[in-house]
Structure formats: C-alpha cells, structure tokens
Computed example of a mutant assay.
Amino acid sequence: MIWPESNRYQEALGKLEFSAAVDYYERPWTHDYVDLLLPAAMCHERMAPFASYGRKIYFRDPCVAPAGQAREDWQIVLELGCALG
C-alpha cells in the first residue's frame, strides 16, 4: 500500500494471465491478486551489502539460514530462469 492509487495496481494485477510475487509476509491487499506467492529471505537470512566506500561494496554473510522455503532474491530469479529454460 505504499504506492499511490493502489487500487489501480490491484486492478492491473487481476487482469494479468499469470502473476507472481516475492515477499516477506502475505499481504491480502496485493497477494490476493497474484497466482503465486514465494517466500523471501529476511535481511539476516541473506547476503547483503552493509557498507560502500567509493567503488568498494562490503557484504556480510547471512547470520542465520533462511526459514522454511524462503530464498534470497538471486536464488529465486536463478531457479525460475532455469525452470523456464
């Protein structure tokens, strides 16, 4: 609900032949309109940049393993791409 005119987004999602979402939580105002909801890894469950100095970016390793079937964003995209060929 952070976007202006959220009802227009909901209407557009409802008209798609197929749509998927990746999120930390199930949000009925959006996810009731998608066909597939995939669980995203929370910030402590994934590798993330924590500092940037000039052109150097420093990453930290995940503190804990992702819960359940949650995946990092890059894993979701890679696995979907491989599955779709």
Rank of each mutant, 00 (worst) to 15 (best):
V34E: 07
S52R: 12
R46S: 07
A51Q: 09
T30H: 09
A67S: 14
H44V: 10
F59N: 06
L36F: 05
D35R: 02
H44R: 05
K56L: 06
F50R: 10
F59A: 02
Y53R: 09
D35L: 00
R27G: 11
G54V: 01
A70T: 03
G54P: 07
S52W: 00
Y33A: 09
L38S: 00
C63T: 15
F50D: 07
D61L: 13
D32G: 15
L37M: 04
R60L: 11
D61K: 14
D35K: 07
A48R: 13
A48N: 09
S52L: 04
L36T: 06
A40G: 01
A65V: 09
C43G: 10
S52Y: 01
A70W: 02
P49F: 05
A41P: 06
T30V: 13
L37V: 07
K56W: 05
P39Y: 06
R71E: 06
Y33C: 08
F50H: 08
R46A: 04
T30G: 09
V34C: 07
A67I: 11
M42N: 06
F59E: 02
M47V: 09
R27C: 14
D61R: 10
L36A: 03
L36Q: 05
C63S: 15
C43H: 14
R27I: 14
V34P: 09
C43F: 15
C63V: 15
R55P: 15
M42Q: 08
R71C: 03
D32K: 14
D35M: 00
H31I: 04
A65G: 08
G54I: 01
A48V: 11
M47W: 07
W29D: 12
V34W: 03
F50Q: 04
L36D: 00
A65R: 11
R60I: 11
H31Y: 06
E72C: 01
A70D: 13
A48L: 09
